[in-house]
């Protein structure tokens, strides 16, 4: 009796501990390589960690704890970096993500609707080609567009020169896409002037972004019953009215999660910005992530970089809470 009781207790204990056994490998490793660095990051964000402390880390004798100085320096633009203003970068970062999504989603929906037109010729070919930007890795796309916008040899300036011959202009065109500091449309975004480099990146990212939205929109379009349109056309609704009153509301539940996904992706779109402009000219196209990278790789102010990363984390948290709310709200909408 004694033995069976203890063995059943053992079995019960095994059953209770089993979930933790399943979690153990992942948490053991994440503890060392993910969570410990995250905590370490918070600690060094309060220090003046620089290159001379690399060897001994927190044990170096000259390492000083300087409280919130790194954070204050970042917010008050007191860092000895030219043209850096945290709130301008933040504003540009939000505008960059928002303006991308505001272009990609409508373009994706419109093109999907266009391709959904009954009786359109060569539809399969269009579909097969339009999906190509989704397939090419973004890193390669970024390098290609960097060369396309090259001032002297880039395809964009050559294309513009070819087109402008029809308007009587002869000779090459040299637009300095990535160097021109003067914003082409002054005062477009108050507080954060948008240079030509911004528009160049918008073009490149537009090429990359709308096909994905179009794929999602096509999927959603398929689930809209055709009789809705038939009923509407019997009632005398025009094509435009059908689009606004049937297509748009019924696409919304599918497009909002996609838009949120696109927003998060653009918000942290490191490769494009780093490859095409490196944040320039005069830091006008710097995103939070590219500036954080500059802090570590070029300036090597590890303490400041850690503080900056903590701030990025806070911003990401706010963005997540907002977008999560939006997604939830639309889920309820689609269920209702």
């Amino acid at each position: 009796m004694e033995i069976s009781k203890s063995s059943s207790r053992k079995a019960q204990w095994q059953k209770k501990s089993l979930p933790y056994l399943y979690l153990l490998p992942a948490f053991l490793i994440m503890g060392v390589i993910t969570f410990y660095p995250l905590i370490y990051q918070v600690i060094i964000s309060f220090t003046n960690f620089e290159t001379q402390h690399l060897l001994l880390g927190l044990k170096s004798p000259e390492l000083e704890f300087i409280g919130f100085k790194n954070y204050v320096d970042i917010f008050t633009a007191a860092l000895p970096v030219e043209n850096f203003n945290f709130f301008r970068v933040l504003e540009f970062n939000f505008w960059w993500a928002l303006s991308n999504v505001m272009l990609h989603v409508p373009a994706g929906v419109l093109i999907a609707t266009l391709l959904n037109t009954e009786g359109l010729w060569m539809k399969r070919i269009y579909r097969a080609v339009y999906i190509l930007p989704v397939v090419v890795p973004p890193l390669v796309v970024a390098t290609i567009w960097t060369n396309i916008f090259d001032e002297r040899y880039g395809a964009m300036n050559q294309l513009l020169a070819n087109i402008s011959t029809y308007f009587g202009h002869v000779g090459p065109i040299y637009i300095r896409w990535f160097e021109d500091v003067k914003p082409p449309i002054p005062g477009f975004l108050p507080g954060a002037p948008l240079t030509l480099a911004y528009y160049a990146m918008m073009m490149a990212n537009f090429w990359l972004g709308w096909p994905f939205m179009s794929v999602v929109a096509t999927g959603a379009l398929q689930s809209i019953p055709k009789d809705l349109y038939e009923a509407a056309s019997i009632d005398g609704a025009t094509g435009g009215q059908q689009f606004w009153n049937i297509t748009v509301p019924l696409l919304r539940p599918a497009m909002i999660p996609a838009a949120v996904y696109g927003f998060t992706l653009s918000f942290n779109l490191f490769n494009f910005v780093f490859f095409m402009t490196g944040g320039g000219p005069a830091r006008s196209t710097e995103l939070l992530v590219t500036f954080a990278y500059n802090l570590v790789r070029n300036l090597r102010w590890y303490g400041v970089a850690a503080a900056f990363a903590v701030i990025i984390f806070a911003v990401a948290m706010v963005v997540f809470l907002i977008t999560n709310r939006i997604t939830r709200a639309t889920q309820n909408y689609s269920e209702a």
Partner: peptide, 17 residues
């Protein structure tokens, strides 16, 4: 929590450690 942090954000402490 780590999913919220962009990869760039975690690179500083990993570099140092």
């Amino acid at each position: 929590i780590p999913l919220l942090m962009p990869a760039v954000g975690l690179s500083t402490p990993l570099y140092l450690l």
